[in-house]
């Protein structure tokens, strides 16, 4: 059955992407499976200049999840375009460049750099990183700021713009609608939720950053609820993310109306997780004689097709 999905003007060969920060720049997974088989990959968040990231400890495991406070360590957009993107393009990988900045001006500069780099299919704006002191989550909480960033980036590129939502926005539907009105082509929901862990044996907070973003299966029901709400409120597509470890998990998001899903922390548990999710969705579609686009939103009582 046809696995293609359409997100605004962009058609993906299937609905499975990998989430930013959990898949490097794509080719790290080359020895495990052919990354080009996926609907796409979202790169590690790219900033204008390279970033060292936070001091250790940066990660710790929690019940059915993990906390991370990497601090957006990355090679920078210039290095990415020069040294990573050409190989991805040669391999036929659909690349979504996830970008991060602490000012609207820098978001625009990064977008401009990507706009003139062949091989980028879409840009995902990270306005919701919980682990940096400037430019992260405060953007994602403020509908006006999100709209401003979205509109400014849209103005300098033909590429589709996706906006990654913070679950900590007070009114996430309002933020998403503001992005939609500002021209966003899709929204991605959700980024991590801030959490903490303390080691009783040492009495110390486990992460140097004190808080970190919670990801993994623990997040899944919250993410699904938010995706459900956003699908009901928006006209643009929603990309579901949060604890997708298996095809069954991914199907929940698609049935809720997400047009695609992102596999994140699961890739750490099993580097072939995204490939297995893709295969599992295809098997489900074959068994139920449904295309993926027929599947999308089928779990909603209001849109049974």
């Amino acid at each position: 059955m046809n696995q293609e999905v359409t997100l605004g003007g962009l058609t993906l060969k299937n609905p499975v992407l990998t989430a930013s920060g959990t898949f490097g720049y794509g080719l790290e997974y080359d020895s495990f499976f052919d990354v080009a088989e996926l609907g796409g990959i979202c790169t590690k968040g790219l900033s204008l200049a390279p970033r060292h990231g936070n001091p250790p400890e940066r990660i710790c495991e929690t019940p059915a999840g993990m906390l991370n406070a990497i601090g957006l360590a990355n090679v920078g957009v210039e290095y990415f375009c020069e040294h990573k993107l050409p190989t991805l393009r040669e391999r036929g990988v659909t690349v979504v460049a996830n970008i991060f900045a602490s000012s609207v001006e820098d978001f625009v500069k990064i977008t401009e750099r990507l706009e003139r780099s062949p091989g980028v299919a879409a840009i995902e704006l990270n306005v919701s990183c919980p682990n940096v002191s400037q430019g992260g989550i405060e953007f994602g909480r403020d509908p006006a700021l999100c709209a401003q960033v979205t509109a400014a980036c849209k103005a300098v590129t033909q590429l589709p713009i996706w906006v990654k939502m913070s679950p900590e926005a007070g009114d996430i539907v309002a933020v998403a609608k503001a992005c939609e009105e500002a021209g966003a082509d899709a929204v991605t929901a959700i980024n991590t939720i801030r959490g903490m862990s303390i080691d009783p044996s040492t009495g110390r907070v486990r992460l140097a950053n004190r808080t970190g973003g919670l990801s993994g299966p623990a997040l899944r029901p919250i993410a699904l609820r938010i995706v459900w709400d956003l699908v009901g409120a928006l006209r643009i597509p929603v990309i579901g993310i949060g604890g997708v470890f298996s095809a069954e998990d991914a199907l929940q998001f698609l049935l809720a109306g997400a047009s695609a899903v992102q596999v994140g922390t699961a890739s750490f548990s099993d580097p072939t997780a995204a490939s297995k999710v893709r295969q599992g969705i295809a098997a489900y579609c074959a068994a139920h004689q449904l295309t993926v686009s027929e599947l999308i939103g089928r779990g909603r009582p209001d849109s049974r097709r």
């Binding site: 920060g21 959990t22 898949f23 490097g24 790290e28 990231g53 250790p56 940066r58 990660i59 993990m66 991370n68 990497i70 360590a73 922390t265 890739s267 750490f268 580097p271």
Partner: peptide, 10 residues
């Protein structure tokens, strides 16, 4: 978390 340069947790 990963062991091959992706999670940047080490």
């Amino acid at each position: 978390a990963c062991g091959y340069g992706v999670c940047l947790g080490c």
